[in-house]
Amino acid sequence: MKYSYYPGCTLKTKAQELEKFALDSAKALGVELEEQKEWQCCGAVYPLAKDEIATKLSSVRSLVAAHEKGEKLVTLCAACHHVIKRVNEDMKIDDNVRKKVNNYLKLTEEYKGEGEVIHYLELLRDEIGFDKLTELVKKPLTDRKIGAYYGCLLLRPSGTMNFDDAENPSIIEDFIKAIGATPIKYPYRTECCGGYLSLDKKEFVKEMTTSIVKSALKHEVGEIVTACPLCKYNLENSEIVDGNKISISYFTELLAEALGVK
């Protein structure tokens, strides 16, 4: 199986382990992820304003490049996935955005959102399948109690993201089960970590993340996994993680561990 792969800025810098473990695991799973040649930063936040066009161009460029190769576009960072998926939806349903973007990019063939972008977790669930993944696990993470932290960007808005049930998701828990560990659901797993507010409202973000980690600890979660670099950073800055009681890691790290490629 071959896919176009969009890494994003953070995976080349502060979140290198999210990418490294994902790529090593992909090899072990027999999946070829080819990094796109000229990917550009997605902008990290989806432009919510209806009149913003320029900030959507980089996503469209990547979507078009993958579509022209006849490949699905795979993302790893929750924010990149959110932005690219929502921009693709705009290209499908928003006449104004589609017309202006196409006019600007002067593509040989008009792009109308025909391409498909999937997150690495969807690749595991929908393309490989969690049953198959279980068969490929070499070192099951038996006895580990792991809590999924979803955050916002993969789930909401659910109509567009179409990732999982936004209020009661299970994809990461199913993944945890597939690699032999015990998933633990806790109430705050879909609650926002504060996101970009951590740039200048650190104390307030700390309040938000502390409630999340407290909720996980109350349900006897031993470690937390996430797919988002900013969620990881914010959760690590909560009051409780400061004391090293609980670790926050990327889901790809656990995957690599279970596949014996860590």
Partner: peptide, 10 residues
Amino acid sequence: KIPQQAIVSG
């Protein structure tokens, strides 16, 4: 440790 994602989004 702050990820680029935070700076770009901010």
